[in-house]
Simulated scan of single mutants.
Amino acid sequence: MRTKVRRRPSGLVLLTDRRVARGPLVEVVASAVGGGVRWVVLRERDLPRAERHALAVELRAVLADVDGTLVVAGPDPLDGDAVHLPAAGPYPPPRLGLVGRSCHDADELARLTTEDYATLSPVFLTRTKPGYGPALRPEGLRALVDASPVPVLALGGIETPEQVWACVAAGAVGVAVLGALMRAESPSDTATTLGSAFNEASTPVSRPAPDGGDLPEKGCGRP
């Protein structure tokens, strides 16, 4: 039986793409981490393993200062213990500390076995993958969250606080963002804006009780 890591991804999760980043990838990620990002998924799967491993080392160092976690896309954890796998495989997943899976429909969710979480995409149409879809929209996301055996991160075209709120309302435990952070003039400011939206949407608010006290109430999240 494999050992679980202490946490699963939640909140604002950053996916890397050096080809659309406005600056050197490590600098962009560091800026987003400065804005509150604590989970980063290293993609860059076209790079040779040695270069990708060197990137993983640098990104883990950035995240270490804030107790963050690097997840590596693909079955090779690059000397770490967290991976995010494509829907196509491998099955069963490797025995590591944390394993996620990309899913897009109920059939793919039904194939999950020992994975710790899944992404569902695309929730909205995305500039990063033009023509990729159709978009699930929040209604489709909610239906799939209800069918998922594991916690779900919403992915695809999430660029605004309103979209973050909609994903939380649909039951997502986090939002995975690529373009809005990679292309941002200030990844730190964008991360702060989107992360604050997630925290507000996920935090109970108070409403007056009949006796004059306060009763807890969810903001835009699901009950």
Rank of each mutant, 00 (worst) to 15 (best):
P122E: 05
R222Y: 13
G74E: 06
H84P: 03
E51D: 11
V26E: 11
L141I: 10
L215D: 03
G131A: 07
L70W: 13
A73V: 03
V145E: 00
A180W: 03
R111D: 06
P161H: 00
S121V: 05
G212A: 01
A191E: 01
R207T: 12
D76Y: 04
V175Y: 05
R127G: 14
G131W: 03
P92W: 12
R101L: 07
A154V: 03
T114V: 13
A135G: 06
R38V: 06
P208M: 11
A82L: 05
P75K: 08
P134F: 06
D107V: 15
G156Y: 04
W39H: 13
V123E: 15
C167R: 11
L153W: 02
R22Q: 10
D46E: 05
V173L: 02
P151G: 05
E44T: 02
G97P: 08
H84V: 00
P94W: 06
L153I: 12
E108F: 08
R6L: 09
A143G: 08
G221Q: 00
R8F: 08
P208H: 09
R45T: 10
G89K: 10
H53Q: 10
A88S: 12
P93N: 04
V71T: 02
L181A: 07
D214H: 08
T193F: 14
A50T: 13
P94K: 10
R222I: 09
A197D: 14
R95H: 03
A201S: 13
R43E: 00
E139M: 14
A88Y: 04
P151C: 03
V71K: 02
A73Q: 00
C103G: 08
D81V: 07
A32N: 11
L42G: 04
T114E: 09
A197E: 03
T160P: 02
M1L: 07
V205P: 04
V28C: 09
A73W: 10
V150A: 05
T69H: 08
R127T: 09
A32S: 11
G174R: 12
V99P: 01
A82T: 01
D214C: 08
D46H: 15
K129C: 08
G221D: 03
Y132I: 05
V168Y: 07
A56L: 07
T128M: 13
L109N: 06
V13D: 09
R19D: 14
G34F: 11
G100M: 10
L120A: 12
L59D: 01
E159D: 13
D17K: 08
V62L: 06
T193I: 15
V20S: 01
P161E: 05
K4A: 14
V175W: 01
S202D: 04
T16D: 12
R43Y: 04
H53C: 07
